[in-house]
Nucleic acid binder design. Structure first.
Length: 553
RNA sequence: GCGCCCGUAGCUCAGCGGAUAGAGCAAUUGACUACGGAUCAAUAGGCCGGGGGUUCAAAUCCCUCCGGGCGCACCA
């Protein structure tokens, strides 16, 4: 009996009890909580439904609980139902009903854990989106890990996900980048507000090499800058793409901001807002009346000098995504951008869409670089920036991704490169990966001595550690669903650590392969199913995190 | 001044109203002539930042104060 069956059974019982009492209270499947209690003495599953319903019914919680428990206990597959504390209903499954899950999981394979929460929903996930003025520094790395993992989670819930990188190749920052390249080429000092560092020298040299003629022969400085801009950005972009791919993150769309400005999309978006009455002129500029939609001040969309204001790109981009058919649009930003949330939600409302539904903004707290416990100030000018490659070189892709995705995005992360690289055993990713490798080793050994999956008798899985392990395995689909609903992939990492622990403890007390001259029994065969089921779930969980599941370590 | 995030074991962090608040690391002590010891078992470690409130029940929700991070442009 899996959790879904048990939920349905409990709901049916509760509905019958309510009906008998002639209660006016209606309950749906979402109203009957069922959770795994921390304490093993409280059974396999527990529900507080009686306490929830006690008040509206005017009945003592324990009385209601007893009533539900009695009927529930008569259900096949349920070994015992107890009422405890203020009115908890504690349910213990019989071994056969609980153990059947092992076979279900092995047969489902990679499909175990999938759900239909976002079946058929078009979802656009925009993340990283670092400016192409330099390599991806560690601030962007967090989103590369979390955003990609979230995309995998949504996909496992049936979402039609597009990973999108907004490539900011328009505006003053790019001009500064181009001027920095020229300065490097001419051997001049880095311009004010410019970019410095080894990578600028390299990109500049590559631009010079790539140019078919002699850059020095071009008389017009603006023309030279345009060469450095377009070619330099292209090289920078290629480097960024490569490091993301090396990190295991493949974007479906790299969207160029420039395109919005050149294609007339910006005007289109402003026109649209004008039709909707959200645009006005004042002080020689064009404004978006965002205060009508909850923003704290109106925003300039066209500056008095005729240039587009910053928000106009966002307007056009959002409208473009909607016109491309995306129902759900999620943008992931660093905490230093949280001030944008209001204006972007105002924009969403102004377009007639639903804020926090058609558009969501996820804010991730910043990542600090720490050395020997002291926060390091990163400076592009001083060249003390730690970039994606540095992190990967130091600790590897799996360890880096896992460590980044393991924490809630609401908490700040300190990255101490020395510590992360030196004390790799501190990273729980190895604990989880080791558990997976162990499931493979156990299976190899078992098969070598003649254990196979030709028999499965779930009633034999009676050991304490087996029922705990089965309970953990049963939780996986709900964990994935919850991670999707809350946009919190870190839950999957935490879950995988719990599962790995349960597996290691089971391994310690239950043998799969017979030892010595022992004959192979159905117990061994059944345990092989359980072993393999654990391997499947660990593999599926790690896949959702973008971390490899090695067969040997 | 206004807004967002955080404050939980020595450290790093889980815990979207439930039972005795958990894990990893660090510390102490044990377990391999048994499927991989990157493991397991045990011990120790907590006014969940302070104070009010909401209710059968608060680390969790609300208010307030303290502490830390970040943000409040016709800059991008």
């Amino acid at each position: 009996m899996n959790p879904a069956d048990l939920s349905a059974t409990l709901l049916a019982v509760v509905t019958r009890v309510l009906g008998r009492r002639g209660a006016e209270v209606a309950v749906g499947i979402g109203d009957v909580p069922l959770e795994r209690p921390r304490n093993r003495d409280h059974g396999d599953w527990a529900s507080n439904i009686a306490m929830k319903l006690a008040k509206p019914l005017g009945v003592a919680p324990r009385v209601l609980a007893e009533e539900i428990a009695t009927e529930l206990a008569a259900t096949e597959g349920i070994a015992a139902v107890d009422v405890a504390g203020p009115g908890f209903i504690n349910i213990t499954l019989d071994a056969a009903a609980a153990g059947a899950l092992a076979r279900v999981i092995v047969e489902a394979g990679a499909d175990y854990g999938r759900g239909d929460l976002y079946a058929g929903v078009t979802m656009n996930l925009e993340f990283v989106s670092a400016n192409p003025t330099g390599p991806i520094h560690i601030g962007g790395v967090r989103w590369a890990a979390v955003g990609d993992s979230l995309a995998r989670v949504f996909q496992s819930q049936g979402g039609l996900v597009t990973r999108e990188y907004y490539f900011n190749d328009h505006g003053a920052q790019i001009d500064r980048f181009a001027r920095s390249l020229i300065a490097s080429w001419l051997g001049e000092p880095t311009p004010e507000d410019g970019y410095a560092g080894q990578y600028i020298e390299e990109i500049a040299a590559r631009v010079v090499d790539a140019y078919p003629g002699e850059l020095a022969d071009i008389p017009d400085r603006a023309e030279v800058q345009e060469v450095f801009r377009s070619v330099g950005v292209e090289f920078m972009f290629g480097d960024i793409k490569k490091s993301l791919l090396d990190f295991g993150v493949a974007f479906d769309v790299y969207f160029h901001e420039n395109e919005l400005h050149e294609s007339g999309a910006v005007e289109h978006a402003i026109d649209r807002l004008r039709e909707l009455g959200a645009i006005y002129e004042a002080d020689g500029a064009t404004w978006f009346r965002s205060t009508d939609y909850g923003d704290d001040k109106d925003r300039v969309v066209i500056k008095s000098d005729g240039d587009a204001g910053y928000i106009s790109g966002d307007l056009a981009y959002y409208l473009n995504k909607r016109e491309r058919g995306f129902e759900r649009n999620i943008i992931m930003l660093g905490a230093d951008h949280h001030g944008y949330v209001r204006r972007l939600m105002a924009m969403t409302a102004a377009f007639g869409d639903t804020p926090y539904y058609n558009l969501e903004i996820m804010i991730g707290q910043l990542v600090n670089l720490v050395r020997d416990g002291v926060p390091q100030r990163m400076s592009k000018r001083a060249g003390t920036v730690v970039v994606l490659e540095d992190l990967v070189d130091a600790v590897g892709v799996d360890a880096a991704r896992y460590a980044l995705v393991r924490s809630s995005i609401d908490s700040q992360i300190d990255i101490d490169l020395d510590q992360w690289s030196r004390k790799t055993n501190d990273n729980p990713v190895f604990y989880v990966q080791y558990a997976h490798a162990r499931t493979n080793a156990v299976a190899r050994n078992a098969i070598a001595v003649g254990v196979d999956r030709s028999a499965f008798d779930a009633a034999l899985l009676t050991h304490e550690t087996e029922s705990v392990l089965l309970g953990n395995l049963a939780e996986f689909p709900r964990v994935v669903r919850q991670a999707a609903e809350l946009r919190e992939p870190h839950r999957i990492a935490r879950y995988s650590e719990e599962l790995a622990g349960a597996y290691h403890r089971w391994y310690d007390s239950c043998r799969v392969a017979p030892q010595g001259d022992e004959p192979v029994t159905d117990l061994h065969r059944t345990r092989l199913w359980l072993n393999d089921a654990t391997g499947v779930v660990l593999r599926n969980a790690l896949a959702l995190l973008g971390v490899s599941a090695p067969e040997r370590m």
